[in-house]
Design a protein around this nucleic acid. Structure first.
Lengths: 235, 235
DNA sequence: CCGTCAAGAAATATATTACAAATAATCTAA
DNA sequence: TTAGATTATTTGTAATATATTTCTTGACGG
């Protein structure tokens, strides 16, 4: 339902492949191929290639100029907050540094969202938050998925903030959380914040305790941050 | 230097026009034109239109399906943090609500960036911050531009955080700050935080006082936030 | 002899046109 | 209700022409 229209659209798969290639540095040392070279490589028509290229331009990954060809943009021009770009980076070029940076911004963003949620959450928002907490408790008893219930909670809080910019980070944070938890689990064994810890945040939001909710959410994520910092720093 | 390649590229101007049209709700009540209708309207070839459409898809503004045509995505799918999308919104469909929401997230993001800057700023970062403060004092004496020196300060702090996600918000925040200051000036007369207020933040960053810098930056932006909330709420 | 400028050539993206194929909503008939 | 046909529309292919930037070359002046 949320799939790309043509599930195996040629354009889409070229965008994927080039996008992943760019963020993983496949073209760092070699000049980026020209349009026609890419056509040949993918066995696709010119227009299809051009459309793929345009999508990557729209995401800030490349630029094009006559006589100069296609070039990978300097990294600071990439739309890091574009869900595709971030996902490509997290899934294909995971690095401790990226995870640390992302968790740092989560400390600010999610605690801010919690504070807003405490003030502005609608009844429906509150129900969503409580439902997620319920799932987390269920997960501790093996009756639900721990990963998805955790993500559901964080998304519900962003949603409850009523601020579109926080809401925008929903996809990013759920993608990142997914990768983050998988990694930390793999490296350290299952060890993450309990449903009880999350519940404390939820209760403060439901009670409208804005500043307390901010602090509690910050502490919660700080816990994840500390866990990450204990991981081996290789690369 | 940061201009689009062909300064008057047909594709680029179509993307602009459609992008602005979408965010300003030009297609809310009428069905979105088909590819061929757009061709005719812009007097452009089919392929050009398709490339423009692909760029808008990449920014989350539209979706396409056979038999259904091009459709404007629900607003929560827009890549609000894409610099183009945000700029279109701010410049062409300014609303108090958007400015309030954006300033809310700035409270969290910029105070977080200030805290990180206090811990991790390089010598060069610090020099940039001090230079911006110098420009702000100069602006108060009429020797520099008040708007640009203000923006330079906030950008320098984001840069100094050393975190790519904060850095990513540079374009967004400078665009938004630009619009925000213009608006508040127009509606309330010149009245904004002094160079002295900014300098206090800068000194705390330079001194490595992480938590104090966070608080001072938050207070600074809270001042702007209070100012915005005093503005007439029309629309 | 060196540097600057102008004109032309070359490389490459950009734009046009025409047509074929695939997909998914809608309609029709059993 | 379901299965199939219809049809509107995007997606993909191909060949060609245009526009823009960069590089090269040469001329001129210092």
């Amino acid at each position: 339902m949320r799939q790309p229209v043509f599930s195996t659209s040629v354009t889409h798969s070229i965008v994927q492949d080039l996008g992943v290639g760019i963020v993983t540095g496949r073209f760092d040392d070699v000049p980026f191929p020209t349009e026609s070279a890419l056509c040949e490589h993918y066995g696709a028509a010119r227009t299809v290639l051009r459309e793929a290229v345009k999508m990557l331009i729209a995401k800030g990954l490349i630029t094009t100029r006559p006589k100069q060809g296609i070039r990978v943009s300097p990294e600071h021009n990439w739309n890091l907050l574009d869900p595709d770009v971030l996902r490509w980076l997290l899934e294909r070029k995971f690095s401790m540094r990226l995870l640390v940076e992302f968790t740092q911004i989560r400390l600010d963003v999610e605690s801010g969202a919690a504070a807003l949620a405490a003030r502005f959450a609608t009844e429906d928002d509150k129900a969503q938050i409580q439902a997620a907490i319920g799932r987390m408790y269920a997960a501790e008893k093996g009756d639900d998925d721990p990963l998805h219930s955790d993500i559901a909670f964080h998304v519900a809080v962003l949603q409850a903030s009523g601020n579109r910019f926080y809401l925008q980070m929903r996809d990013m944070i759920s993608a990142a959380l997914h990768v983050s938890i998988m990694r930390t689990n793999k490296l350290k064994g299952v060890h993450r914040a309990s449903a009880r810890d999350h519940d404390r945040v939820a209760q403060l939001i439901l009670a409208g305790e804005s500043e307390a909710a901010r602090k509690e959410m910050r502490d919660l994520i700080q816990g994840a941050f500390d866990l990450i910092n204990e991981l081996p720093k290789r690369e």
